[in-house]
């Protein structure tokens, strides 16, 4: 494992911890899109089907369990916890996220590296992860006061994707036959979706102002 990959995984882990901190400690999910969180739960459930069949490393299994457990508990918190659900911006979080599922699934059926159940589900999870942030970005645009934790959460998610691209570049030059167009292109699309957010995040940081996205 190279440094970019490890840093990517750690920023991903940090993003989850920041979100759990906000939800569990402050008992608030204001500014957080349930739609995006549900998509992430589906992403991990369909990607980690191999968790009990293929052992890669203890690190790999543990991280998979963490991402599965955290994504489903976040969805549970926002839907079921009586205090947290009260802070949920339901009227603002209107992105029709179910409409992303079918196109991603059809694309996975058509474009994949191997036509097997596990492989198609894995590819589906890549396509879905690429667009899963969209409801969250739309919600951010509508939020007047983006709190620091929400801003940091989205920043860490974007950083994780950027670091994964550096990891792929590194692996491409250090490992023989390391060519994977499907995750690369969907990963690139996913990272580009954060470009706009990053711009305003750094602007607000530079000028020491509160983060606000233009509608």
């Amino acid at each position: 494992m190279n440094i970019f990959r490890l840093a990517g995984d750690m920023t991903h882990l940090a993003s989850v911890l920041v979100l759990l901190l906000k939800i569990h400690t402050i008992k608030s999910c204001a500014g957080i899109s349930l739609k995006t969180q549900e998509l992430f739960a589906i992403v991990f459930a369909s990607r980690y089907l191999d968790i009990f069949t293929d052992f890669i490393s203890l690190y790999n299994t543990l991280m998979k369990l963490i991402f599965l457990g955290s994504s489903f508990s976040i969805v549970w918190y926002i839907r079921r916890h009586k205090l947290v659900r009260r802070s949920y911006d339901k009227d603002q979080d209107t992105f029709r996220h179910y409409f992303l599922l079918l196109p991603c699934f059809i694309l996975a059926l058509l474009i994949n590296e191997k036509f097997t159940f596990k492989e198609v589900m894995w590819t589906f999870s890549l396509y879905l992860e690429a667009v899963a942030i969209l409801p969250q970005l739309v919600l951010l645009q509508r939020t007047k006061n983006i709190d620091n934790l929400t801003g940091q959460y989205v920043f860490l998610l974007g950083a994780y994707r950027g670091l994964y691209i550096l990891n792929w570049i590194y692996r491409y030059f250090t490992e023989p036959h390391y060519v994977h167009w499907i995750p690369w292109i969907s990963g690139l699309v996913q990272t580009l979706l954060y470009a706009d957010f990053f711009y305003y995040y750094f602007e607000s940081w530079k000028n020491n102002k509160k983060l606000q996205l233009p509608a």
Binding site: R5, D9, H12, D50, D54, I56, S57, N60, M63, K64, F67, E113, K114, W122, Y164, N167, E175, H177, Y178, H180, P183
Partner: peptide, 10 residues
């Protein structure tokens, strides 16, 4: 091996 090498990522 080539096909599976990406499955070590998360």
């Amino acid at each position: 091996v080539e096909q599976e090498s990406l499955k070590d990522e998360l």
